[in-house]
């Protein structure tokens, strides 16, 4: 069997997800042994950015028209497109304030110099192209990436958890941050896969992996309100990593608050 041709790309983001790939130290030789990596600018020069791909891994958010063009080009060349990281899957932190016109931010940050580049409201990949597999996380989990690649090598999509961080938190028997400490943990509405990493250190889940399917955001808001958190704090908390996700848009949240 020919090795699948693979491209690994980064749009706007911190490049942390590509770094996770390089951090698979023990498995790196198996990984490059099983894939024919055509493009991975973070790791190697001499990329072939014209060839047809079996799998494209794309990190980051689309924030410029050039990135939209690049993404569409990658999509056209790739049989499968995998979004890696919460930015690519949900928009991530760059998309948390999309209700404000980006021109305002550019002016504030760059002054007149900002006029040289064009920006659009930051969006996840799925706003522009079909995404075949989404691996969320800020950054992605190494285990999920490796399992995902293994499944794709078998010609199948991996089975990712479709339940909340609470489930993994309880499996590992960590004391509940929400019930025991009264802190604003987003474990009940955030998709699992990290092994409840933050609660394992006694910290709240900040929702970096994005929402689990079928979340009950109204109930989460209710719990946080009862614990005395303000509506502004709750909204900001809920919308840090996945603001473009439908259950977290401002109008939905407003309705959920009043339900």
């Amino acid at each position: 069997m020919d090795k699948p041709k693979v491209g690994i790309y980064g749009l706007t983001g911190c490049a942390g997800d590509q770094l996770v790939i390089l951090n698979c130290e023990d498995e790196l030789l198996d990984l490059v042994g099983s894939l024919d990596i055509k493009s991975f600018s973070m790791a190697a020069s001499g990329a072939d950015d014209q060839c047809q791909l079996d799998i494209a891994f794309v990190e980051g958010t689309v924030v410029q028209p050039d990135e939209e063009k690049l993404l569409k080009d990658i999509r056209q060349r790739a049989k499968l497109l995998v979004a890696i990281g919460t930015c690519a899957v949900w928009g991530g932190v760059t998309a948390m304030k999309n209700e404000v016109d980006p021109k305002k931010f550019i002016e504030q940050v760059y002054g007149p110099a900002g006029k040289v580049f064009e920006v659009i409201p930051p969006q996840p990949l799925s706003s522009f192209v079909k995404v075949d597999l989404s691996l969320p996380g800020c950054p992605i989990e190494k285990e999920q990436l490796l399992r995902g690649v293994a499944s794709l090598l078998h010609g199948d999509l991996p089975k990712l958890p479709n339940y909340a961080v609470c489930t993994e938190c309880k499996m590992a028997e960590y004391p509940c941050i929400l019930v025991e400490k009264g802190l604003p943990c987003l474990g009940p509405i955030t998709v699992a896969g990290c092994g409840a990493r933050c609660p394992s250190y006694g910290l709240t889940c900040n929702g970096c992996r994005g929402p689990v399917d079928d979340i009950n955001v109204a109930s989460e808001i209710n719990i946080l309100k009862e614990k005395g958190f303000t509506w502004v704090d709750i909204q900001n908390r809920l919308r840090t990593f996945a603001a473009p996700a439908p259950p977290l848009n401002l109008q939905t949240l407003e309705e959920a608050k009043n339900a």
Binding site: S34, R147, A150, C166, K170, G187, I215
Partner: peptide, 26 residues
């Protein structure tokens, strides 16, 4: 919340899912 906490901590909830995990050697 559908978070699954009650099932995990329940001493008599015994449901399990069975699935295959694949290695990189294909």
């Amino acid at each position: 919340l559908g978070c699954g906490t009650c099932s995990m901590v329940c001493p008599t909830c015994y449901c399990y899912a069975v699935f295959d995990e694949l290695n990189l050697d294909a």
